[in-house]
């Protein structure tokens, strides 16, 4: 009985956001340390960590967008499609139309913004289920990608390639390889973009009226309205931000792979949702933290690395791993929240 009471007080005192965030951070460190201890090798080198960042910069950006939509009570599964569409459009612009790098960046932003405006309008002002809207968005983006150009191809534009091969050296984190040559640790430009966006949006969510509005609307839409928040505009903006971020992520992804293809970023929406949920964003809205989302992405990719290091490197293991992680965390969320509700009631 005593233990039960103590538990319920922990359940009730810590805020929803913190309890889920703590779980995530603990799990990430446990996993990473476990990987170092049991699999050693690559995990001991800082570059391993930077490679995770390099490979997942785009995912980080889409995930924070996803978190924002989810915090305000919505969902957007079109992000993967938008990433693919952006990569294809930019590739076509650079190579076939002879466009500039700056122009391709504008295209990426424009596509993201357009998806955001349309989807946001349909969800917020016409009150259509976000899932259906973004499901259509996803199919539209994927279909459009093939309409723009059917075959995948690598970009040859010199200006772009220079940008693509830019490396940002992290001093003091390098290692000496087998031949005795010191190799610098580096990150790609996309990582910097991702980190800047995480910090920027973290600040927005924590300290601005709009950011707090996302939480209020996700917590209780009716109450938020009564408290004088413009609910429609807030929901609209959450979708605009998410899709614009997906556009930026598309460019970062494009910068990482250097090609356009309709099969790019397949299932990225799923990874973004999984990262958000693992990072402590509640599916039901109102609870979440972008730092948690960042850790969610890192956890997800770390476990993928662990799985492939363990010799299970067939492609299907990735899908199964992510799906089971998502499943476990969804169930944990559901149970934690039910218990909390019960603890508060009594």
């Amino acid at each position: 009985m005593g233990a039960e009471q103590k538990k319920s007080s922990i359940f009730t005192k810590v805020s929803d956001t913190n309890i889920l965030l703590t779980i995530t951070i603990v799990i990430f460190f446990a996993m990473y340390i476990g990987a170092i201890l049991f699999q050693g090798g690559g995990f001991t080198k800082p570059q391993m960590f930077f490679n995770i960042l390099n490979a997942n910069a785009a995912l980080i950006i889409t995930s924070i967008g996803m978190s924002i939509v989810m915090i305000s009570g919505g969902i957007d599964i079109s992000v993967g499609g938008v990433v693919a569409l952006v990569s294809m459009c930019c590739a076509v612009h650079l190579d076939m139309k002879g466009g500039s790098v700056f122009g391709s960046m504008l295209i990426a932003l424009g596509i993201g913004l357009a998806f955001g405006l349309v989807q946001g309008f349909l969800v917020a002002y016409l009150d259509i289920q976000p899932f259906i809207v973004s499901l259509a968005g996803m199919f539209f983006a994927r279909g459009m990608t093939t309409i723009v150009n059917t075959a995948p191809f690598n970009v040859a534009n010199e200006e772009f390639k220079a940008l693509m091969n830019t490396r940002i050296i992290i001093p003091g984190m390098g290692y000496t390889n087998r031949k005795g040559i010191y190799v610098d640790a580096y990150v790609e430009p996309g990582v910097i973009v991702a980190i800047v966006l995480v910090i920027l949006l973290f600040v927005v969510l924590r300290w601005t009226k709009l950011g707090r509005g996302f939480y209020a609307v996700g917590g209780n839409r009716q109450s938020a309205l009564m408290l004088g928040i413009n609910v429609k505009r807030t929901r609209f903006l959450s979708h605009v931000i998410c899709s614009t971020l997906a556009g930026i992520a598309g460019y970062v992804y494009f910068l990482h792979v250097g090609s356009g293809s309709a099969s790019h970023a397949m299932g990225m929406e799923m990874n973004a949702i999984a990262s958000s949920i693992i990072g402590g964003t509640m599916l039901s809205g109102g609870v979440g933290n972008l730092i948690g989302t960042l850790f969610g992405v890192l956890s997800l990719s770390t476990i993928q690395n662990i799985v492939s290091n363990a010799g299970l490197d067939q492609a299907w293991w990735t899908g199964i791993t992510i799906a089971s992680m998502l499943c476990i965390f969804l169930v944990i969320q559901s149970i934690v929240m039910t218990r909390r509700k019960r603890a508060l009631k009594n």
Binding site: G219, N220, S223, G286
Partner: peptide, 11 residues
């Protein structure tokens, strides 16, 4: 109650 349960009292 027309307040948001997920926010703090001050908010």
């Amino acid at each position: 109650i027309t307040l948001c349960p997920n926010l703090t009292v001050a908010e």
